[in-house]
Amino acid sequence: MADYPFPDPVVEIANVEEVARDLVVIANRDVDLVPNIGVIGGTHSVLVVDTGLGPRNAEKVLSFASEYARGRRLYLTTTHFHPEHAFGAHTFTGAATYLVNTAQAEDLATKGAGYLAMFTQLGEPVARELDSTRIPVPDLTYDGGYELDLGGRTVLLQPTGRAHSKGDQVVTVPDVDVMFTGDLAEAGQFAIFPWFPPHDTDVSGIRWVEVVKRLAEQRPRVVVPGHGDVGGARLLADVRDYLTELRDETWLRRDSAMAEETVAEEVRALMIERHPEWRLPEWIERGVSCLCAEHPAEMA
Rank of each mutant, 00 (worst) to 15 (best):
G114P: 05
D177F: 14
R56G: 15
R128L: 08
D50Q: 08
H227G: 07
I192M: 09
L108K: 05
V49D: 08
R73S: 12
A216G: 13
W195Q: 10
A27N: 09
W278A: 04
G205S: 06
G151P: 06
R234A: 07
A95T: 03
L150N: 05
P35M: 05
M1N: 12
D30L: 03
C290K: 14
I26H: 00
E147H: 12
A69M: 00
Y75R: 00
P281A: 15
Y115N: 12
C290Y: 10
C290D: 09
E210Q: 15
T43A: 14
S289F: 13
G71D: 02
E17C: 00
L74N: 01
V263E: 04
N57K: 01
V239F: 04
V223P: 03
A65P: 02
G152P: 11
R254F: 10
G228S: 11
P9L: 10
I13S: 03
E265D: 08
L148Y: 11
T154E: 03
R207D: 09
A117V: 13
N28E: 00
H82D: 11
K213S: 15
L33N: 12
G54K: 10
P159E: 05
R128G: 06
M179C: 03
Y142Q: 06
L62E: 06
D229T: 03
D143H: 04
A20P: 03
V178N: 04
A105Q: 04
V263R: 05
